[in-house]
Design a binder for these strands. Structure first.
Lengths: 239, 239
DNA sequence: CGGCATATTGAACCTGGTCAAGCGGAGTGG
DNA sequence: CCACTCCGCTTGACCAGGTTCAATATGCCG
């Protein structure tokens, strides 16, 4: 049976067979070790659009890996407004914000029909002691999350609306490429409001920037479908 | 000998005696375990103002704890401009951004005469396997760094100049309180330029906001010396 | 004392926000 | 099946907070 013929929402997979394997698992893991990891992971979990995986404030017990679809993380600031903190595509891990205080500080919601793998953190910690590579891998994942947030900080504090939107587009393009999907034609899983919220802009500004990009023939947008026409220029804007 | 009479730059201390103890060590550590941790930590390291602890791009091998003074972390964005990513006060850990890629992504520099403890990360990882509490503690520290950065994201993308400056002031006030220093009178260790850079504002705006706060009798500023006069109003602005 | 970095203040400008109107597709009910 | 509404998106006109540019303190270190 060809892997590519399998429905991505199929939940009978084991990690060893999963096509996301190379992305969410530490590369240097032995087959035996993968099996042990496999035992603690709860696979499947198909989710409808708008269904929450967890809410901010709930007790933390697991981190999650996206299998298919896309997930949005967001917090409610103390002034009561939503702040989108991340978009998670297949092969990416989310939920690590909960470790510090033993409760999630973000909420996580499916932006479309999705499926995620749940990884109980206690068991993961135990296993990390037996498999040092795994401990190292998780330290690395968390560190990458830190540096990612810091790049975003820099983007928000120093860059124009056009640069911010271009950066997000290039980020999604690159992540699609990693997933062996098209880097130039794809569907944005999130709304304009989510994009704006994430980038510190209003819906109107996001819309205007996209229109401007289209006029300059940098891309074509139709609703959520995007085709990037001038990667060089977009990359330059994203810098 | 009273601990408070000891010079804070003294480098003959052991972790068990260090007054920062309660802040940078996992709380539930046994005395025996503290001793083992103590063995791997290189204490002391007195630093002059403007001396770098590491530069972005250098190979990562240690994280650091501030013993005294204050440290600034910053990155150079690919467009070549500096982005301040954090200010570190006594008892706080920095350098965890380096774990992900095995090289530091930030540079770290002393903003005044300071001293830091160096914690070799390899040895820390080994020790984490023997002391699960320690592993847990480091996962928590990193997670807190993530949530901290995310709060900052929200601040930069949603709040006005006044709210940003008030938030920074309250943050420093709270951290001083934790250090058993005055929460209302203190010296800002960083320049206006650093504040502005960190908060996504220009020097001029920072200066104007501080002047405005002073006119409204929320605080008194004289150069780097600050006295907070109306904590309630400032806290409200910081929300 | 002189020179250079840091901070403050003022005036003009501009990017992105706000407010408002209109479009178009999806879902609903008569 | 069509009319109606709701919601997400786009576009325009105006406004404002913060940047930019410039001039002037203030202070530090040789």
């Amino acid at each position: 049976m060809s892997m590519d013929s399998v429905c991505p929402h199929n939940n009978t997979f084991h990690c060893g067979d999963c096509r996301m394997n190379a992305l969410c698992l530490p590369l240097a893991l032995q087959t035996k070790e993968v099996e042990r990891l496999d035992e603690i992971i709860q696979r499947g979990k198909p989710l409808q659009k708008d269904h929450h995986i967890y809410h901010a404030g709930e007790e933390f017990d697991s981190v999650f890996a996206v299998r298919s679809g896309s997930i949005k993380s967001y917090t409610i600031s103390n002034s009561g407004q939503e702040q989108v903190t991340g978009f998670h595509l297949p092969g990416e891990i989310f939920g690590m914000d909960g470790i510090g205080q033993n409760r999630y500080t973000n909420s996580a919601v499916a932006m479309e029909t999705s499926s995620v793998c749940e990884i109980p953190f206690n068991r993961l910690q135990e296993l990390s002691i037996a498999i040092p590579t795994l401990q190292r891998h998780f330290f690395q994942l968390m560190s990458l999350e830190i540096t990612g947030d810091q790049q975003l900080l820099s983007l928000l504090s120093k860059n124009t609306a056009e640069e911010r939107v271009a950066t997000l587009l290039m980020s999604i393009s690159n992540r699609n490429f990693r997933l062996k999907l098209s880097a130039t034609r794809f569907r944005l899983p999130m709304s304009r409001a989510d994009i704006g919220n994430y980038l510190g802009l209003t819906v109107e500004t996001v819309s205007r920037v996209l229109s401007r990009f289209q006029k300059q023939a940098l891309l074509k947008v139709d609703k959520k479908e995007v085709e990037l026409l001038n990667l060089d220029k977009l990359r330059e804007l994203a810098n």
